[in-house]
Design a protein around this nucleic acid. Structure first.
Length: 291
RNA sequence: CGCGGGGUAGAGCAGCGGUAGCUCGUGGGGCUCAUAAUCCCAAGGUCGUUGGUUCGAAUCCAACCCCCGCAA
Protein backbone atom coordinates (compact mmCIF):
# COMPACT_ATOMS: atom_id res chain seq x y z
CA UNK A 1 0.00 0.00 0.00
CA UNK A 2 1.65 3.19 -1.16
CA UNK A 3 1.03 6.32 0.84
CA UNK A 4 -0.23 9.40 -0.95
CA UNK A 5 2.12 11.57 1.04
CA UNK A 6 3.97 13.88 -1.30
CA UNK A 7 7.67 14.10 -0.60
CA UNK A 8 10.45 16.20 -2.03
CA UNK A 9 13.86 14.62 -1.56
CA UNK A 10 17.05 16.64 -1.04
CA UNK A 11 20.30 14.76 -1.58
CA UNK A 12 23.37 14.51 -3.73
CA UNK A 13 25.88 11.64 -3.34
CA UNK A 14 25.66 8.04 -4.43
CA UNK A 15 25.19 6.57 -0.98
CA UNK A 16 21.93 8.39 -0.57
CA UNK A 17 20.35 6.99 -3.72
CA UNK A 18 18.97 3.88 -1.96
CA UNK A 19 17.16 6.17 0.44
CA UNK A 20 15.48 7.93 -2.45
CA UNK A 21 14.57 4.63 -4.08
CA UNK A 22 12.96 3.23 -0.96
CA UNK A 23 11.08 6.46 -0.35
CA UNK A 24 9.73 6.24 -3.87
CA UNK A 25 8.50 2.72 -3.24
CA UNK A 26 6.52 3.76 -0.21
CA UNK A 27 5.49 7.35 -0.81
CA UNK A 28 4.85 9.78 -3.62
CA UNK A 29 8.18 11.37 -4.46
CA UNK A 30 7.15 14.45 -6.36
CA UNK A 31 10.44 16.24 -6.66
CA UNK A 32 14.16 16.07 -6.04
CA UNK A 33 16.60 18.81 -5.20
CA UNK A 34 20.25 17.99 -5.79
CA UNK A 35 23.56 19.65 -6.54
CA UNK A 36 24.16 21.15 -9.99
CA UNK A 37 26.15 19.21 -12.58
CA UNK A 38 29.86 19.42 -12.01
CA UNK A 39 32.96 18.68 -13.99
CA UNK A 40 34.23 15.27 -13.04
CA UNK A 41 36.46 12.47 -14.16
CA UNK A 42 39.75 12.51 -16.02
CA UNK A 43 38.07 14.09 -19.00
CA UNK A 44 36.47 16.80 -16.87
CA UNK A 45 33.09 16.12 -18.35
CA UNK A 46 30.08 17.85 -16.89
CA UNK A 47 28.45 15.14 -14.82
CA UNK A 48 25.09 15.14 -13.06
CA UNK A 49 24.95 14.21 -9.40
CA UNK A 50 24.26 10.53 -8.62
CA UNK A 51 20.84 11.45 -7.30
CA UNK A 52 20.02 13.25 -10.53
CA UNK A 53 21.17 10.26 -12.54
CA UNK A 54 19.03 7.95 -10.43
CA UNK A 55 16.07 10.18 -11.15
CA UNK A 56 16.20 9.58 -14.88
CA UNK A 57 13.08 7.82 -16.05
CA UNK A 58 11.36 8.22 -12.71
CA UNK A 59 7.98 9.77 -12.12
CA UNK A 60 9.52 12.89 -10.63
CA UNK A 61 12.12 13.41 -13.36
CA UNK A 62 10.47 16.62 -14.50
CA UNK A 63 10.83 18.03 -11.00
CA UNK A 64 14.55 17.52 -10.51
CA UNK A 65 15.91 20.85 -9.38
CA UNK A 66 19.61 21.70 -9.35
CA UNK A 67 19.74 25.21 -7.94
CA UNK A 68 23.01 27.06 -7.48
CA UNK A 69 21.40 29.15 -4.78
CA UNK A 70 18.51 28.41 -2.50
CA UNK A 71 16.77 31.63 -3.43
CA UNK A 72 13.15 32.78 -3.83
CA UNK A 73 13.04 31.31 -7.33
CA UNK A 74 13.60 27.87 -5.87
CA UNK A 75 11.05 28.53 -3.15
CA UNK A 76 8.54 29.39 -5.82
CA UNK A 77 9.27 26.23 -7.79
CA UNK A 78 8.94 24.09 -4.70
CA UNK A 79 5.73 25.74 -3.64
CA UNK A 80 4.16 24.84 -6.97
CA UNK A 81 4.78 21.17 -6.30
CA UNK A 82 2.77 21.34 -3.07
CA UNK A 83 4.88 18.91 -1.08
CA UNK A 84 3.75 17.54 2.26
CA UNK A 85 7.22 16.77 3.53
CA UNK A 86 10.90 17.25 2.75
CA UNK A 87 13.39 14.50 3.37
CA UNK A 88 16.96 15.74 3.41
CA UNK A 89 19.98 13.42 3.22
CA UNK A 90 23.46 14.73 2.51
CA UNK A 91 22.27 17.49 0.25
CA UNK A 92 25.34 19.62 0.74
CA UNK A 93 23.86 23.03 1.36
CA UNK A 94 22.22 24.67 4.32
CA UNK A 95 18.52 25.11 3.66
CA UNK A 96 17.03 28.41 4.83
CA UNK A 97 13.96 28.55 6.99
CA UNK A 98 11.67 29.99 4.34
CA UNK A 99 12.20 26.90 2.24
CA UNK A 100 11.90 24.54 5.18
CA UNK A 101 8.50 26.11 5.84
CA UNK A 102 7.09 25.18 2.44
CA UNK A 103 5.83 21.66 3.16
CA UNK A 104 3.02 21.49 5.66
CA UNK A 105 4.80 18.91 7.78
CA UNK A 106 8.20 20.53 7.54
CA UNK A 107 11.45 18.72 6.79
CA UNK A 108 13.12 15.63 8.16
CA UNK A 109 16.87 15.20 8.03
CA UNK A 110 18.82 11.99 8.39
CA UNK A 111 22.18 12.29 10.07
CA UNK A 112 24.69 9.53 10.72
CA UNK A 113 25.51 10.13 14.35
CA UNK A 114 23.71 10.12 17.66
CA UNK A 115 22.83 13.79 17.88
CA UNK A 116 23.69 16.13 19.46
CA UNK A 117 27.06 14.46 19.07
CA UNK A 118 28.93 15.14 15.84
CA UNK A 119 26.78 17.79 14.29
CA UNK A 120 28.13 18.77 10.90
CA UNK A 121 29.45 17.32 7.71
CA UNK A 122 31.60 14.36 8.76
CA UNK A 123 29.94 12.45 11.61
CA UNK A 124 31.08 9.01 10.44
CA UNK A 125 34.68 10.03 9.97
CA UNK A 126 34.69 11.70 13.36
CA UNK A 127 33.37 8.60 15.10
CA UNK A 128 36.03 6.46 13.42
CA UNK A 129 38.83 8.90 14.20
CA UNK A 130 37.83 8.90 17.84
CA UNK A 131 37.70 5.15 17.96
CA UNK A 132 34.13 5.17 19.22
CA UNK A 133 32.61 1.80 20.00
CA UNK A 134 29.08 2.95 19.32
CA UNK A 135 27.58 5.52 17.04
CA UNK A 136 24.25 5.64 15.29
CA UNK A 137 21.83 7.33 13.03
CA UNK A 138 19.37 10.11 13.83
CA UNK A 139 16.30 11.52 12.18
CA UNK A 140 15.49 15.07 13.18
CA UNK A 141 12.95 17.69 12.28
CA UNK A 142 14.98 20.39 10.64
CA UNK A 143 15.26 23.95 11.71
CA UNK A 144 17.50 26.69 10.40
CA UNK A 145 20.41 25.79 12.67
CA UNK A 146 22.89 23.11 11.69
CA UNK A 147 21.69 19.64 12.79
CA UNK A 148 19.93 21.33 15.66
CA UNK A 149 16.25 20.44 15.33
CA UNK A 150 14.41 18.11 17.69
CA UNK A 151 15.07 14.39 17.44
CA UNK A 152 12.34 12.28 15.91
CA UNK A 153 14.03 8.89 16.18
CA UNK A 154 17.44 7.32 16.52
CA UNK A 155 19.13 3.98 16.31
CA UNK A 156 22.40 2.92 17.87
CA UNK A 157 24.96 1.12 15.76
CA UNK A 158 27.91 -0.78 17.13
CA UNK A 159 31.21 -0.14 15.37
CA UNK A 160 33.85 -2.76 14.69
CA UNK A 161 37.62 -2.51 14.53
CA UNK A 162 37.52 -3.04 10.79
CA UNK A 163 34.89 -0.50 9.82
CA UNK A 164 35.96 2.18 7.42
CA UNK A 165 34.02 5.19 6.20
CA UNK A 166 32.71 3.38 3.17
CA UNK A 167 31.57 0.24 4.95
CA UNK A 168 30.11 2.11 7.90
CA UNK A 169 28.31 4.48 5.61
CA UNK A 170 26.70 1.51 3.90
CA UNK A 171 25.66 0.08 7.23
CA UNK A 172 24.25 3.40 8.38
CA UNK A 173 22.19 3.75 5.24
CA UNK A 174 20.92 0.22 5.51
CA UNK A 175 19.83 0.81 9.09
CA UNK A 176 18.41 4.23 8.41
CA UNK A 177 16.07 3.31 5.59
CA UNK A 178 13.70 1.11 7.61
CA UNK A 179 13.87 3.56 10.48
CA UNK A 180 12.90 6.37 8.15
CA UNK A 181 10.05 4.44 6.54
CA UNK A 182 8.67 3.64 9.95
CA UNK A 183 9.26 7.10 11.35
CA UNK A 184 7.57 9.12 8.63
CA UNK A 185 3.99 7.86 9.21
CA UNK A 186 4.38 8.07 12.96
CA UNK A 187 5.75 11.56 12.64
CA UNK A 188 2.87 12.67 10.43
CA UNK A 189 0.22 11.34 12.73
CA UNK A 190 1.86 12.96 15.71
CA UNK A 191 2.53 9.67 17.43
CA UNK A 192 6.11 10.60 18.10
CA UNK A 193 7.05 13.01 20.82
CA UNK A 194 9.92 15.11 19.54
CA UNK A 195 12.89 15.35 21.77
CA UNK A 196 14.75 18.63 21.92
CA UNK A 197 18.50 18.27 21.66
CA UNK A 198 20.64 19.12 24.63
CA UNK A 199 22.78 21.86 23.15
CA UNK A 200 25.26 21.70 25.99
CA UNK A 201 26.23 18.22 24.83
CA UNK A 202 26.68 19.18 21.20
CA UNK A 203 29.94 18.54 19.38
CA UNK A 204 30.74 19.53 15.84
CA UNK A 205 32.73 18.21 12.91
CA UNK A 206 33.51 20.02 9.71
CA UNK A 207 33.73 18.87 6.15
CA UNK A 208 36.73 16.68 5.35
CA UNK A 209 39.44 18.31 3.32
CA UNK A 210 42.10 16.59 1.32
CA UNK A 211 44.83 17.73 3.69
CA UNK A 212 43.10 16.04 6.59
CA UNK A 213 44.36 12.72 5.26
CA UNK A 214 47.97 13.85 4.98
CA UNK A 215 50.70 12.66 7.31
CA UNK A 216 54.47 13.15 7.26
CA UNK A 217 56.19 9.98 6.16
CA UNK A 218 59.25 10.89 8.23
CA UNK A 219 57.19 11.46 11.32
CA UNK A 220 54.23 9.20 10.89
CA UNK A 221 51.63 9.01 13.66
CA UNK A 222 51.37 6.06 16.04
CA UNK A 223 49.98 2.93 14.40
CA UNK A 224 46.68 3.19 16.21
CA UNK A 225 46.08 6.72 15.03
CA UNK A 226 47.26 5.88 11.54
CA UNK A 227 44.87 2.95 11.46
CA UNK A 228 41.98 5.19 12.42
CA UNK A 229 42.91 7.70 9.76
CA UNK A 230 43.16 4.98 7.14
CA UNK A 231 39.68 3.77 7.98
CA UNK A 232 38.04 7.17 8.49
CA UNK A 233 39.41 8.65 5.30
CA UNK A 234 38.74 5.74 2.99
CA UNK A 235 37.92 5.99 0.12
CA UNK A 236 38.51 9.74 0.21
CA UNK A 237 40.79 11.52 0.81
CA UNK A 238 42.57 8.44 2.20
CA UNK A 239 45.47 8.57 4.59
CA UNK A 240 48.24 9.71 2.29
CA UNK A 241 51.78 10.99 2.29
CA UNK A 242 54.48 12.07 -0.11
CA UNK A 243 57.44 9.83 -0.54
CA UNK A 244 60.61 10.46 -2.55
CA UNK A 245 61.69 7.40 -4.51
CA UNK A 246 64.71 6.93 -6.72
CA UNK A 247 64.29 7.37 -10.41
CA UNK A 248 66.95 7.39 -13.10
CA UNK A 249 67.13 11.19 -12.89
CA UNK A 250 67.11 12.20 -9.29
CA UNK A 251 64.40 11.83 -6.70
CA UNK A 252 60.73 12.10 -7.34
CA UNK A 253 57.95 12.77 -4.90
CA UNK A 254 55.00 10.51 -5.29
CA UNK A 255 51.75 10.31 -3.42
CA UNK A 256 51.39 7.11 -1.46
CA UNK A 257 48.01 6.19 -0.05
CA UNK A 258 47.40 3.81 2.80
CA UNK A 259 44.19 1.86 2.44
CA UNK A 260 42.28 -0.49 4.72
CA UNK A 261 43.20 -4.19 4.82
CA UNK A 262 46.93 -3.44 4.75
CA UNK A 263 46.77 -2.11 1.24
CA UNK A 264 49.02 0.56 -0.21
CA UNK A 265 48.72 2.50 -3.44
CA UNK A 266 51.41 4.60 -5.02
CA UNK A 267 50.41 7.26 -7.49
CA UNK A 268 49.92 5.75 -10.92
CA UNK A 269 49.70 2.18 -9.69
CA UNK A 270 47.03 -0.14 -8.48
CA UNK A 271 46.52 -0.88 -4.80
CA UNK A 272 48.61 -3.76 -3.49
CA UNK A 273 49.26 -5.40 -0.16
CA UNK A 274 51.91 -3.62 1.89
CA UNK A 275 53.93 -6.81 1.89
CA UNK A 276 54.07 -6.89 -1.91
CA UNK A 277 54.70 -3.17 -2.10
CA UNK A 278 57.78 -3.58 0.06
CA UNK A 279 59.24 -6.14 -2.34
CA UNK A 280 59.34 -3.56 -5.05
CA UNK A 281 60.10 -0.59 -2.78
CA UNK A 282 62.19 -2.04 0.05
CA UNK A 283 63.16 1.44 1.27
CA UNK A 284 59.60 2.44 2.15
CA UNK A 285 59.73 3.38 5.83
CA UNK A 286 56.44 1.86 6.94
CA UNK A 287 56.96 -1.85 7.35
CA UNK A 288 53.69 -2.80 8.95
CA UNK A 289 50.22 -1.47 9.49
CA UNK A 290 49.11 -4.14 11.91
CA UNK A 291 47.74 -2.53 15.05
C1' C B 1 42.33 19.52 -26.31
C1' G B 2 42.85 20.35 -17.77
C1' C B 3 47.89 18.13 -15.27
C1' G B 4 50.69 13.73 -14.40
C1' G B 5 52.36 8.41 -13.52
C1' G B 6 52.50 3.40 -15.48
C1' G B 7 52.11 -1.31 -18.71
C1' U B 8 59.21 -6.26 -18.21
C1' A B 9 58.41 -14.09 -15.37
C1' G B 10 52.41 -16.04 -10.92
C1' A B 11 53.09 -11.10 -7.56
C1' G B 12 55.83 -6.43 -6.44
C1' C B 13 59.82 -3.89 -8.92
C1' A B 14 64.96 -2.75 -11.49
C1' G B 15 67.12 -2.26 -16.31
C1' C B 16 66.48 2.40 -20.52
C1' G B 17 70.78 0.93 -27.65
C1' G B 18 74.37 -4.78 -27.77
C1' U B 19 71.73 -11.84 -26.86
C1' A B 20 66.67 -10.12 -19.79
C1' G B 21 67.66 -9.08 -13.64
C1' C B 22 66.20 -8.48 -8.07
C1' U B 23 62.83 -9.74 -4.01
C1' C B 24 58.75 -13.03 -3.09
C1' G B 25 55.99 -17.05 -4.69
C1' U B 26 56.01 -21.98 -7.37
C1' G B 27 58.43 -27.15 -8.34
C1' G B 28 62.38 -30.57 -6.79
C1' G B 29 66.19 -31.78 -3.26
C1' G B 30 69.37 -31.17 1.55
C1' C B 31 69.40 -30.13 6.84
C1' U B 32 65.62 -30.88 11.01
C1' C B 33 61.68 -34.48 15.79
C1' A B 34 59.77 -30.36 13.19
C1' U B 35 59.22 -25.67 10.71
C1' A B 36 55.91 -19.84 7.54
C1' A B 37 63.35 -21.22 9.58
C1' U B 38 67.68 -22.26 6.53
C1' C B 39 70.77 -24.15 2.27
C1' C B 40 71.17 -26.01 -2.93
C1' C B 41 68.98 -26.67 -7.75
C1' A B 42 65.07 -25.78 -11.34
C1' A B 43 60.93 -24.17 -14.08
C1' G B 44 58.69 -19.76 -15.77
C1' G B 45 59.08 -13.62 -19.99
C1' U B 46 57.17 -12.94 -28.30
C1' C B 47 59.73 -6.81 -22.20
C1' G B 48 50.93 -3.77 -23.82
C1' U B 49 49.94 -3.62 -29.58
C1' U B 50 51.40 -2.01 -34.51
C1' G B 51 54.70 0.45 -37.50
C1' G B 52 59.50 3.27 -37.96
C1' U B 53 64.97 4.58 -37.00
C1' U B 54 69.43 1.25 -36.44
C1' C B 55 74.36 -3.59 -38.06
C1' G B 56 71.41 -4.37 -33.59
C1' A B 57 65.63 -1.99 -29.43
C1' A B 58 62.63 -3.86 -23.50
C1' U B 59 65.73 0.36 -24.22
C1' C B 60 65.02 5.92 -29.45
C1' C B 61 60.51 7.85 -32.57
C1' A B 62 55.14 7.63 -34.04
C1' A B 63 50.27 5.89 -33.55
C1' C B 64 46.91 3.00 -30.86
C1' C B 65 44.94 -0.06 -26.59
C1' C B 66 44.59 -0.74 -21.28
C1' C B 67 45.51 0.72 -15.91
C1' C B 68 46.16 4.56 -12.26
C1' G B 69 47.07 9.44 -9.31
C1' C B 70 45.84 14.82 -9.28
C1' A B 71 41.90 17.79 -10.33
C1' A B 72 36.31 18.24 -9.89
Amino acid sequence: MKSQLKIVFFGTPQFVVPVLEKLAENFQVVGVVTAPDQKAGRKQLLTPSPVKLASQGQAWEANVLTPQKLDPTLAEQLTKIHPDLFVVAAYGKIIPQNILDIPKFGALNIHYSLLPKYRGASPIQEALLNGDKVSGTSIIKMDAKLDHGPIVSTKEIRLSESDNFESLNTIMTKETIPLLLKTIPDFMTGKIKLQVQDDTMATYCSIIKKEDGFFDINNSPPLEKLDRMIRAYYPWPTAWTKWPFDKAQGKNNKIVKLLPQNMVQIEGKKPVKLEEFLRGYPDFPIKTLAV
